[in-house]
Amino acid sequence: MKKLRETLSYILPNLFFVLLVISIFLPAKVEIENRYVFLIVVIALEINLLVKIKKQSSRDIGTVLFLFLLVWEFVTTKFETNNTMLYPVPERVFNVFVTDAHKVIEGIFSSLYLLFLGFLIALILGVGLGLLVGWFDRLKKAVYPIAQVISPIPPIIYMPYAVALLPSFDVARVFVVACAIFWPTFINTVLSVGSIDKKLLDSARTLNVSSWTLLVNILLPYSVPGIIHGVTLSVGASFMVLTGAEMLGSTSGLGWFVKYYSDFSDYTRVVSGIIMIGIVVTVINKGIGWVSKKLVKWK
């Protein structure tokens, strides 16, 4: 029984893959300009699956993914009755990455640039202020309750006001992104500093470290895991805020891409944009995971 299930978990994802490829080549009832981009993506996924086939979770993910793509492909292309505007065809969705490559790449870079600036500002301020506020008890007692009131406010709500106050839309966007990352970073830093073992502090005191050394060489490294934890949690939120912020007065960016084509009811491009956002967020998360592994070798 267990053996059977195991064998099945190897067969299913590959079976769905084969069916999907067959389905792609079966005559479609709707117009398809270029089926090869989609095909390449599907093959790339299959190669990735075969590389990680030993992992049960990879096989399961493959099964779900290929089944989903198979149903999507089959249902949207094999019936004349399908309204391709409302229910976009996967071949066309993925073809957008080729036909609109310029806009997509520009969008990614414009979004990443704003995100990067927002991150940088938020991390410097969040960690710096977090260390100070976390260390000075009196400051903490004054500031932390206030932070708890302000931090849950969704930063996107500041956008219209930020646009009015700040010199440009882009500055306003960086501001709201920075807000989204600042609060979790700040709060996690304060909490980390507060949770440091008294023994470590005593140890530092008997080494006669200066205040600066204490902050930079003791409290900061001790807080790094907590800070990274906070950042990981807020990447999604920051992207959400950014894409939201791009829907206002923008001419580029992934959020703008989705919003712009929504206005034309071009849902094929809308779905492409959404997939792209998913990919970018995943890559960023992987990047943070990688940095975290490099920085925190001591746990």
Partner: peptide, 13 residues
């Protein structure tokens, strides 16, 4: 210089 009863090394070093 002090050697503590409980380990007092910095775990990140």
């Amino acid at each position: 210089g002090v050697v503590f009863q409980h380990y007092s090394l910095f775990p990140w070093m």
